[in-house]
Design a protein around this nucleic acid. Structure first.
Length: 270
DNA sequence: GTCCATGTTCTTTA
DNA sequence: CTAAAGAACATGGA
């Protein structure tokens, strides 16, 4: 469920429900989803108040009144919702925080690629820059450092944070760049186009509450609608919405990659 | 049974 | 040595 727009939507819908609330109890905890493994969330969280929630890349960061921070990563199938304590429990519910007013913050993740990460007061962060505020010149400099296909570079969280498989494909289509174009072969003008396309696509996706392609929901349990507006992602063999050519699916960096062979030409070819 | 899935990290290969 | 490709993780749906 999780790329920048989905994570931002969760943060935006979660904040009004839990910011300022106290964590009265850790009611349920599958401890192998906690990192580091020796962090005792029961002790660390019980009695603390949530003073704020923010997003960094694909992370949902909780700020405690003590100054400590921790974050939830949704992995591929995670959900973070707030619901009444008497609401039925979904299978694979790994963490339940009682936040008062009969409300619970629940983390559910069938595949368990996500998890809960304790940061404490540690500020170190090796992630790349945030795409929504990224200057094109910085993106160009970062892309110069690798010969990998641009699709692969956009998925690298150390290079740029928050973009995943859906929005990499959608942004490359919007910028008319072939996913296999070597990152360091894109000229500054093309990178500026890409930078603008990334921002446009991400902002639009946020406005639509993210993409619910399988089971993504926001903190209130609502699905997003941006999946209805995808131009290439998961549209193999369907007509390009611009030129009617058939959308192609290939594999890049081990991930499904969708593009229009007519709108997105490989530099040096056709 | 098969293949595929919004992600990340570790291992292997070149 | 480094960079990049591949495998692995766990579960469920088509």
């Amino acid at each position: 469920m999780p790329e920048l727009p989905e994570v931002q939507t969760v943060v935006d819908t979660l904040a009004p429900l839990v910011v300022g609330r106290r964590i009265d109890a850790v009611l349920h905890l599958r401890d192998d989803i906690v990192c580091p493994p020796d962090a005792d969330l029961r002790t660390l969280l019980t009695g603390r108040s949530i003073s704020g929630i923010s997003r960094r890349g694909k992370r949902i960061v909780f700020h405690c009144d003590t100054g400590d921070r921790w974050f939830v990563h949704l992995g591929m199938t995670g959900r973070l919702t707030v619901q009444p304590a008497n609401a039925s429990l979904l299978l694979h519910t790994h963490l339940i925080l009682d936040v008062g007013e009969n409300l619970q913050l629940r983390f559910v993740d069938p595949r368990r690629f996500g998890g809960v990460f304790w940061l404490g007061s540690d500020a170190a962060d090796v992630m790349g820059p945030e795409p929504l505020t990224l200057r094109p010149a910085l993106l160009f400099r970062r892309l110069q450092q690798t010969r990998r296909p641009i699709k692969s570079a956009l998925l690298d969280q150390h290079l740029i944070a928050g973009i995943g498989n859906i929005y990499a494909d959608e942004a490359l289509f919007a910028a008319k760049i072939h996913p296999l174009a070597p990152a360091n072969r894109l000229d500054p003008k093309t990178v500026a186009k890409l930078s603008a396309a990334i921002k446009r696509v991400l902002r639009k996706a946020i406005r639509h509450g993210g993409s619910s392609v399988s089971d993504y929901v926001d903190a209130a349990g609502r699905r997003g609608t941006f999946q209805l507006l995808h131009r290439v992602y998961d549209r193999a063999n369907e007509p390009c919405r611009l030129c009617r050519a058939s959308i192609i699916r290939i594999v890049v960096a081990g991930r499904s990659t969708h593009f229009c062979p007519r709108c997105q030409k490989l530099p040096g070819i056709g």
